[in-house]
Design a protein around this nucleic acid. Structure first.
Ligand SMILES: [Zn+2]
Length: 866
DNA sequence: GCTGCCGGGTT
DNA sequence: AACCCGGCAGC
């Protein structure tokens, strides 16, 4: 029976992990359909017997009840073999729901706690020997537990109570001995009593057939999971279940935790438990659960799994769950752990998974008791994947891992729940140790990396590279990550690092390429006007991709020089550049008012002209121009990070936090940051703005230029290098050159800001029209223009209009026209300043809290609008 | 120097 | 999105 049951149970559980597994188990179970019928009959008979017994027992007492329950359970097991299949089948089908419920329960610390506690009980058990001994019992029992919950009543009838009782008792004894609980025993009994009623109830329901019962049970399970913590709602049965779970928890706690605190709690609980039952219990449960989780994690691996089962199973059968749960938990734990691990790995790194697994496998080997159980389980289930698991960490890890894996399938909630469950998560981490550390360490690095490059996207694809990349990003982080990886991998540690390093470079290139792509893709979006531009660009881009990059005439239009610069400079930036260019145009137009977005080539002059015109008119189109003359920007020199910030403090902060990994703000700064950024002076205000604006959008872009490797990127990218050559033209220093592009970007922002944007787009489109290369050039052109344009100013004008029109920028012109006025007005429009008193003046700095939010934030006052 | 508030940045 | 703040321009 036990084996079969275990198989069945696993099926459902497996379903949790994988529906497929569940299905298989269900199929196997179904074979016993005939048996089910028999089981049903037996169950009915047993029910009658039970009823009679119950009546007798009622008079007598709890102790007897226990016996009765015990037998029932035993019967259940027997029956379960046949019947359970249905259950399993139902469960498998339901598995998602149940799982969800479970997950939800997990989410809720309390609910999860109940379930977990059960599992924990088994896991917590400090003494492995006991566990091992129990494990056997558990193997048989585990099924029971589950069965009980699902079909307690029916099965109970079946059989041989005596055997069941004996086992049950034995288990209890073992548990009791292992756990310490003398007092608990009493509690346990009380619990059983409570449970009994539910069991009875269950019987009637299930008497006819298990299948009907099953559904009800599940709800209960759910209730238990969800409500139990909170609780009040549960019916008698539910309460019983809770009790059981609670008791188990207590026991587990005792064994696992050992802590006096918990004991005290347990003691308290027992006293309270019996009388108050559900209400009182629920609150305690959560705590316990949490405690258990925390404590248990270390001890038990599979606790998590058990928890789940308990949730489901417990509700139906209070008594059995207690005992069984542990056993089940053990089995489950392995599976869970495996799953969890995988999940964790995924979370951390896909690649790592393998390594982790290996490590896990090793661990398994180490872990004797658990491993054995696992093996058996595995055999039964024949689940290839998970076995790995692991015993390793304790339950907590299992939980987390489980959550992750399962979550992937159905348990997203669980993860969230895990996150919510402070305790679990916390506990889990410690357990994880290796994995946890990796994840944690990785996580930090990753975040940094992401900032620097964009790795986020890539990571999934290339685990190795991801690692390597990570390492690459930060020397320190890398080393750390490597170390961590080594731990995980154990054997392969050495090779991995090196290989990864070598790979890293390549990866980096890829990454950079990816970055560029991403930036490109994003850049268009960023720009408002771009819409059209985007379309055009997109087309152009695509075309570019297929076709040669340059073909586009952008060069021709603008002139060789431009073409050069544009493509080359921007290679990486190029992607962004196109949009930028468009934006740039806009701003210019806006500023200049002349507007037409010149084409790529034409644009330069035109744009310049326009700008100039605008500039002539209003100097700096944009409202406020910041400092006309030089603007100083700060560029991050970190490897892949091209971030440009307008303030030294900002850049320092950026370096400190992102690259140096120092949380402490300025306090910690030792001046090291100073080495990682450089000042970039921009002539034009717009440039400065552009840079600033750029930094956010195109940080990655900037980085590319710095990186030589970018070349890998599509054709478009290569041009970048040439661009680099140009850069010098724009800005004195190479870094400056980079900045120059940024300046262009700035323009974009400005444009967007003003709204002239649309116009600029067309120009870009025209330029881009040819190909991506053209695109980049366009941007490049824009850059160059922006920089150089000033001198050129005039020539451009005439040209630009024609080109712009030619390109079909009619809008641009119109817009330009429109825009131009705005500019003039723009200066005007820029709110000169609020006339009336604002909050600040009205309420004074003293009453700053009385200010409108806008005033508090130094924004335009919303309260006293002029 | 105060005030209003934009733009950039962080959380 | 909320919040903060540097900095600029008008007065
Ligand atoms: Zn206000």
């Amino acid at each position: 029976m036990a084996p079969v049951l275990s198989g069945v149970w696993w099926g459902p559980e497996a379903s949790v992990v994988r529906s497929e597994v569940a299905a298989d188990a269900g199929a196997a179970l179904w074979s016993g359909g005939v048996q089910l019928v028999l089981a049903v009959v037996l169950s009915t008979l047993t029910l009658l017997l039970l009823v009679s017994v119950l009546l007798l027992l009622c008079a007598s007492c709890q102790g007897q009840k226990k016996a009765a329950n015990g037998p029932e359970e035993g019967d259940h097991e027997n029956l379960m073999n046949g019947v359970p299949q249905k259950e399993t089948g139902s469960q498998s089908a339901e598995s998602p729901a149940t799982d969800v419920a479970v997950s939800s329960s997990r989410n809720g610390p309390l609910t999860s706690g109940t379930i977990l506690t059960d599992t924990q009980d088994s896991s917590p058990q400090p003494s492995e020997e006991i566990l091992s001994s129990q494990s056997e019992l558990r193997s048989s029992k585990c099924p029971q537990d589950r069965e009980l919950p699902s079909i307690p009543p029916d099965n109970a009838l079946a059989g041989p109570p005596a055997s069941g009782d004996s086992t049950y008792e034995v288990v209890k004894e073992i548990a009791a001995t292992s756990r310490d609980v003398s007092a608990e025993d009493s509690l346990y009994e009380t619990v059983k009593e409570i449970k009994d009623p539910p069991a009875h109830l269950g019987l009637p329901n299930g008497t006819t057939q298990p299948s009907p019962d099953v559904p009800p049970h599940h709800p209960h399970a759910l209730l238990n999971g969800h409500l139990s913590p909170v609780t009040p709602e549960r019916g008698p049965l539910c309460t019983g279940a809770e009790y059981a779970s609670i008791d188990l928890k207590k026991k587990s706690r005792h064994s696992a935790d050992m802590e006096s605190k918990r004991r005290s709690n347990n003691a308290n609980v027992p006293s309270h438990g019996p009388p108050e039952e559900p209400e009182d219990l629920p609150p305690p449960v959560p705590e316990k659960v949490l405690d258990e989780n925390d404590n248990q994690p270390v001890l038990v691996n599979g606790s998590a799994g058990a928890g789940l089962h308990n949730g489901e199973l417990d509700s139906p059968l209070s008594p059995a769950p207690g005992i069984d749960s542990p056993t089940l938990s053990d089995k489950e734990a392995p599976l869970y752990s495996s799953v969890a691990k995988t999940n964790c790995d995924e979370a951390v790194k896909e690649e790592d998974k393998e390594h982790d697994y290996s490590s896990i496998a090793e661990i398994k080997g180490l872990v004797t008791s658990s491993s054995d159980l696992y093996a058996t389980v595995r055999d039964i289930y024949s689940q290839p994947e998970q076995p790995e698991e692991p015993v390793l960490d304790g339950t907590d890890p299992g939980y987390e891992t489980i959550r992750l894996p399962k979550t992937s399938s159905s348990d997203d909630d669980r993860r969230a729940g895990a996150g919510e469950e402070g305790p679990d998560a916390a506990t889990a981490e410690p357990d994880y140790e290796c994995v946890g550390e990796q994840s944690a360490s990785n996580g930090a690095p990753e975040s940094q990396k992401v900032d620097g490059n964009g790795r986020g996207p890539e990571a999934p694809e290339e685990p190795r590279t991801g690692d390597g990349k990570r390492a690459g990003r930060d020397g320190d982080t890398r080393s750390v990550s490597l170390l961590e990886q080594k731990r995980k991998v154990v054997s392969s540690s050495i090779d991995v690092p090196h290989a990864r390093r070598s790979e890293e470079e390549v990866d980096m290139d890829k990454v950079t390429a990816a970055m560029v792509l991403t930036s490109l893709s994003t850049s268009p979006l960023v720009k408002s006007p771009p819409v059209k531009v985007n379309e055009v660009l997109s087309g152009s881009w695509k075309d570019n991709g297929s076709a040669g990059p340059f073909t586009p005439s952008s060069n021709s239009s603008s002139g060789g020089y431009w073409s050069w610069s544009a493509p080359s400079d921007q290679s990486n930036p190029s992607t962004p550049s196109p949009p930028l260019s468009a934006d740039n145009f806009k701003p210019f137009r806006g500023s200049g008012g002349s507007g037409g977005g010149a084409g790529p080539a034409g644009p330069e002059d035109p744009s310049l002209e326009e700008q100039d015109g605008s500039s002539l008119l209003f100097d700096e189109p944009i409202p406020r121009k910041r400092k006309n003359s030089m603007k100083v920007m700060f560029k991050c020199l970190w490897k892949n990070c091209g971030k440009v910030l307008s303030t030294a403090a900002g850049i320092q902060r950026h370096i400190r936090t992102i690259h140096l990994g120092r949380n402490c703000d300025s306090d910690c700064s030792d001046g090291e940051e100073d080495f990682y950024y450089t000042e970039i002076k921009l002539n034009t205000d717009s440039v400065a703005d552009g840079l600033s604006s750029l930094s956010p959008v195109s940080p990655s872009v900037l980085s590319p230029p710095s990186l030589p490797s970018l070349g890998h990127l599509p054709d478009c990218h290569r041009p970048q290098q040439p661009a680099d050559t140009k850069e010098p033209h724009g800005g004195g220093a190479t870094p400056l050159s980079r900045s120059a592009p940024s300046a262009l970007y700035l323009i974009h922002t400005d444009h967007a800001y003003q709204a002239t944007a649309p116009v600029s787009i067309p120009s870009s489109g025209s330029s881009s029209g040819s190909a991506c290369a053209s695109f980049t050039p366009a941007t490049g052109a824009s850059f160059s223009i922006s920089w150089q344009s000033p001198p050129v100013t005039f020539t451009g004008n005439t040209v630009s209009p024609s080109k712009s029109q030619g390109f079909g920028e009619q809008r641009s012109q119109t817009i330009a026209a429109l825009s131009s006025p705005p500019r003039a007005t723009a200066a005007l429009s820029r709110k000169v300043r609020g006339e009336g008193k604002k909050c600040r003046k009205v309420y004074g700095m003293e009453n700053r809290d009385m200010w409108c939010t806008a005033c508090r934030w130094k924004k335009a006052c919303q309260r006293f609008t002029d």
